Amino acid sequence: MTGPALLDAGLGDLLDAVLRDHLGPRRGRLVVLAMSKDENPKATIIAFPPEGRKPLLAVKMALTHGARASVAAEARALQQLAERDPTLVGGTVPRLLDARHDATGAVIVTTAHEGAPMSIDYHRWRHTANPRAVHDDFQCAGTWLDSLADAVMPHDQDHGLVEGPTAGSIGQALVARWPSDASAQALAEHVTSSTSDVSAGGPASVVHGDFWCGNILRRDGAVAGVIDWEHASFVDDPLRDRARFALSYALYLDRHTAPGRRVAGHRGLVAGPWGEGVRYAVAGSGWFPELVQRFLSDGLQTTGRDPRLWREALLQGLAEIAATSDHGDFARHHLSLGAEMLSWP
């Protein structure tokens, strides 16, 4: 199997032109902050002044032909967000400064935010074993999501905005991806049934679409920035971001624990097969499952829905990742876990 086709080597010339136009002859330091590992990777470069540690701007460039669409989607999302909320949610969302593409590739330039990704704290020794630290992570995430929903609401006159996936479109995508798989068929039927449609009656708002610890920058205990807006939608259910955050947080709880060993701070969790942290969060007992339930229930209740549907919200989140993830194995694992969850009491 061949990998995705890389863009022309001339992409470096496009990047050089962008940096020259925005920074002038004194470039300062350039740091490759992230090199995504999905099927269509992007590189993010942070520019710093010759002296000083405050970042000047961020540059994201597509490394494959397939990644060009993602870079363009992020540019559109940031532009539409700025049009609807000039404050860019209190200064936490990058401001689009430039977007360019030619035959060699695509590049966008945004403002840069100070702060460390929440994922750094997440992977620190025993961070996820500390109830107070984990509660603070969820509190930060929930507070920011509430401010996003308050700041950017669709207007009746808005047209052409990206709409988020519906239960029906997720079900169709599952069956299309695995047409002969009984698990895909069962999960698709469940998420599209009227009894499991957690979106029914919920409000429409802007949704980040990939809201996990790695995309949340924190400084002095508060959210300082939220990055990577390529999956954003503007007419969507805000509960999607809460479900994505909770699932991704639970998924790696046993990452640093040897298989068969108890996970520190989580009495009912033993490191084991893929997704054991999610199983624990949904069907286990203890402070972490209770926190996840409360996080989803609060999101349902504040948007006028039944808080008892928190499991359905997570199940729909699993189905969505299975249907849309670029990474085949990652998608398959979420499908299997979602189908397994259908049989849980």
Score class of each variant (00 low, 15 high):
Leu239Cys: 10
Ser196Gly: 08
Leu217Ser: 07
Val226Arg: 12
Asp236Val: 10
Ala232Trp: 03
Ala224Tyr: 12
Trp212Asn: 13
Asp210Ile: 04
Phe234Ala: 09
Asp241Ile: 03
Pro203Cys: 06
Ala232Met: 05
Asp228Met: 05
Val206Thr: 05
Ser199Asp: 09
Thr195Arg: 12
Asn215Leu: 03
Val223Asp: 05
Val206Gln: 07
Pro238His: 00
Asp237Phe: 00
Cys213His: 15
Arg218Met: 07
Arg219Tyr: 09
Gly214Pro: 04
His231Leu: 07
Ala224Ile: 08
Val223Arg: 12
Ala246Gly: 07
Ile227Asp: 12
Gly202Leu: 02
His208Gly: 07
Asp210Tyr: 12
Arg242Leu: 12
Ser199Cys: 09
Pro238Thr: 11
Val198Lys: 02
Ala224Pro: 08
Ile227His: 07
Phe211Arg: 00
Ser199Gln: 03
Pro203Glu: 04
Asp237Tyr: 00
His231Lys: 15
Phe211Glu: 01
Gly201Met: 01
Asp236Arg: 07
Ala204Pro: 02
Asp220Asn: 14
Cys213Glu: 15
Gly201Tyr: 05
His208Cys: 08
Gly201Ile: 08
Phe245Thr: 01
Leu239Arg: 11
Ser196Trp: 13
Ile216Thr: 04
Ser196Leu: 12
Ile216Pro: 03
Leu217Glu: 10
Ala200Met: 10
Leu217His: 11
Val226Ile: 15
Arg218Val: 15
Asp210Glu: 14
Asp236Asn: 06
Ala243Phe: 00
Val235Cys: 09
Asp220Arg: 13
Asp220Trp: 10
Gly225Glu: 02
Phe234Gly: 10
Asp197Trp: 02
Leu217Pro: 04
His231Ile: 01
